[in-house]
Computed example of a mutant assay.
Amino acid sequence: MTTTVTSFVWFDSAAEQAAEYYTQQIPGSKITGITRNPDGSAFIVELELAGHSVTLLNGGPAHPHTDAFSLQVIVDGQAEVDRLWDALTADGGKPGPCGWLTDRWGLSWQVVPSELPALMGENPAAVGTAIRTMSKLDLEALRAAARS
Rank of each mutant, 00 (worst) to 15 (best):
A141Q: 14
T23H: 00
A118P: 10
T32N: 02
E46V: 07
T3G: 10
D76S: 11
S70M: 06
P64H: 07
P117L: 11
L49T: 11
N37A: 07
A141M: 09
G59W: 00
T32K: 04
S135R: 13
V111P: 11
V73F: 11
N123G: 04
L139D: 12
L84R: 07
A87D: 05
V45M: 00
G28F: 05
D138G: 15
E48T: 14
G60M: 01
D76E: 13
D91G: 07
G121R: 06
K30G: 07
G33N: 05
G28P: 06
M1Q: 12
T4M: 02
A126G: 09
A118M: 13
A125W: 04
N58I: 01
P61C: 08
A118S: 14
P97T: 14
G60I: 02
A126S: 08
V75W: 10
A144G: 05
Q72H: 12
S70W: 01
D67G: 11
L101I: 00
E115Y: 08
T133E: 15
F11A: 00
K136Y: 02
A14K: 09
P95R: 05
D39F: 11
Q72G: 12
K136I: 00
D103E: 09
R36Q: 08
E20A: 14
H52Y: 04
R83E: 04
